[in-house]
Every structure is written in structure tokens, then in C-alpha cells.
């Protein structure tokens, strides 16, 4: 008790702690559509890693620590092709820039009044598309003190489950039929597109989704190294500009 600082002594315990019962609510999403789709994607990744000859221990290490499928795919492709560290790291970094605005959009939704920066630094390592979309959608129905635990519950459970799934496929599964592999991969883009459409708060985000999809392949043609960055930034800026120009006339919802 002597160790408590004055802030803690003078404030009510209610405001100074998270409600960790929401961790389990988040973890329960292991049995949900987004979890099924993410697990399927990592079944596919486990198969890909095996074909590439990546040792099991390295697979188990890189899935939860990187925790972003596009980064996983780029790193694996780099390792397979024998690329150097100096070629792979910038490619991964370019494709991962989305993590910054994603984290910035999530934090105001999930932080509680007592949340410290180091809590957010730890939790941010779990930011990836699936748990991000899902938490943005659910946050308004969760009390403030339960939101961060909910996100951590869902994301950490998925990180463990996908690592197990990828490792099992790496060790046990016979080569999956090509039709199944194709279907497993295809789940991811269609799930991302539909769930993000539903989570959008403003028309501007729908525009960003459409413009980003169209600009993606165009940017790949002109600037294969920075395609995701260029297409994504342009799409976001165009969508926001339209939002500012059109919002007063047609409304934002």
C-alpha cells in the first residue's frame, strides 16, 4: 500500500482498471465468421511455408510476431527467392504502412481514461485487419473499460489459433488440392472488402475502398515496389476530398 502513488490513492478504482471480463468476450470470437476466414488464410499460409521449405520453428516464430498476412507473404517470398535483408525489409515496410493509420483509427475507440501510452504500444502489436475491423464495429456496444481487453482477447486468441493452424498444416496435412488452396486464399480479400464496407462510418470510406481497389493494379503496373502505398494514399486523399466537397450537399452518412 505504501507503494501506491498519490494518483491511485485519490482516484476511484473503477476508473483506474480495465474490465478484463471483456477479454473472454473477445476470445469467444474464435468461433465466428471472421475467425474462420482468418484461420483458413493461415491454413493456406502454412501450406505455402511448407512448399517453400521454411522450418517449423521459424514459421511458429514469424506468424504471431509479425502478425500481418501481407508482411508474412512478402517475407516468405523474399526468403524463397534468396533476397537480401536490405531488399526484404523495405518491401515489408512499404506494404505495412497501413498499420499506422489503422492504429490511429483504433486507439480513440478502445482507450480508457487511465490508459497509458505503454499499454497502447504493447497492444498495437496486435493490430491487423481482421481484429481491427471487428473491434471498430463492436466498440460502441462495449463499455470503455472493456474495449481494450476485448480487442486484446480477440486478437491474441487469433494469433495463437492461427499459429497452431499454420503449424499443423505445415506438419500434418498432405498437399491440399489446388481448388481448396485457391478457395482458402480467396476468402481473405472478399471478407476484407465486405466487412470494411459494413464498418465504414462515412461515405468517404466507401469511396476510398472503391478507388483503392481500382488504383491498386494501376500502381502495380507503374510502380511495383510501392504499389500499395501509392494506390492507398491516393485513394484515401481522393475520398476525403470528395467527402469535404460533397458532404455539405449530400450528407456524410
Amino acid at each position: 500500500m505504501m507503494l501506491l502513488n498519490s494518483d491511485q490513492v485519490h482516484s476511484n478504482n473503477e476508473d483506474q482498471s480495465y474490465d478484463w471480463s471483456w477479454y473472454l468476450q473477445g476470445a469467444r470470437n474464435l468461433f465466428s465468421l471472421p475467425a474462420f476466414i482468418l484461420l483458413s488464410a493461415f491454413v493456406g499460409f502454412g501450406g505455402l511455408a511448407r512448399e517453400a521449405g521454411l522450418p517449423l520453428a521459424h514459421l511458429i516464430f514469424l506468424v504471431p510476431t509479425i502478425w500481418a498476412l501481407p508482411s508474412h507473404l512478402i517475407l516468405l517470398a523474399g526468403i524463397v527467392s534468396g533476397a537480401s535483408l536490405l531488399a526484404i525489409a523495405p518491401a515489408v515496410a512499404l506494404a505495412a504502412i497501413r498499420m499506422m493509420p489503422m492504429t490511429m483509427a483504433l486507439i480513440p475507440e478502445i482507450r480508457a481514461p487511465h490508459t497509458k501510452r505503454w499499454h497502447l504500444l504493447l497492444v498495437s502489436n496486435l493490430v491487423a485487419i481482421t481484429a481491427w475491423v471487428h473491434t471498430l464495429q463492436k466498440a460502441k456496444d462495449i463499455p470503455r473499460r472493456g474495449r481494450l481487453p476485448y480487442f486484446v482477447g480477440f486478437a491474441s486468441t487469433m494469433a495463437i489459433a492461427t499459429t497452431v493452424a499454420a503449424a499443423l498444416v505445415h506438419q500434418l496435412a498432405p498437399s491440399l488440392p489446388p481448388a481448396i488452396m485457391a478457395c482458402l486464399y480467396f476468402l481473405t480479400p472478399i471478407y476484407f472488402a465486405t466487412s470494411i464496407w459494413n464498418t465504414a462510418r462515412a461515405k468517404a470510406e466507401h469511396i476510398a475502398l472503391g478507388v483503392g481497389f481500382v488504383l491498386g493494379p494501376i500502381a502495380t503496373w507503374y510502380m511495383p515496389q510501392a504499389n500499395i502505398l501509392i494506390a492507398g494514399l491516393l485513394a484515401g486523399i481522393v475520398a476525403y476530398a470528395l467527402h469535404r466537397i460533397l458532404a455539405p450537399k449530400i450528407g456524410t452518412e
Binding site: 470494411i196 470510406e205 476510398a208 500499395i228 492507398g232 485513394a235
Partner: peptide, 9 residues
Amino acid sequence: RCIATGLVA
């Protein structure tokens, strides 16, 4: 959010 959505797209 527009930038994040564009990048994910």
C-alpha cells in the same frame, strides 16, 4: 480512416 481504408483496399 480514409487513408487506412484506401491502403487496405
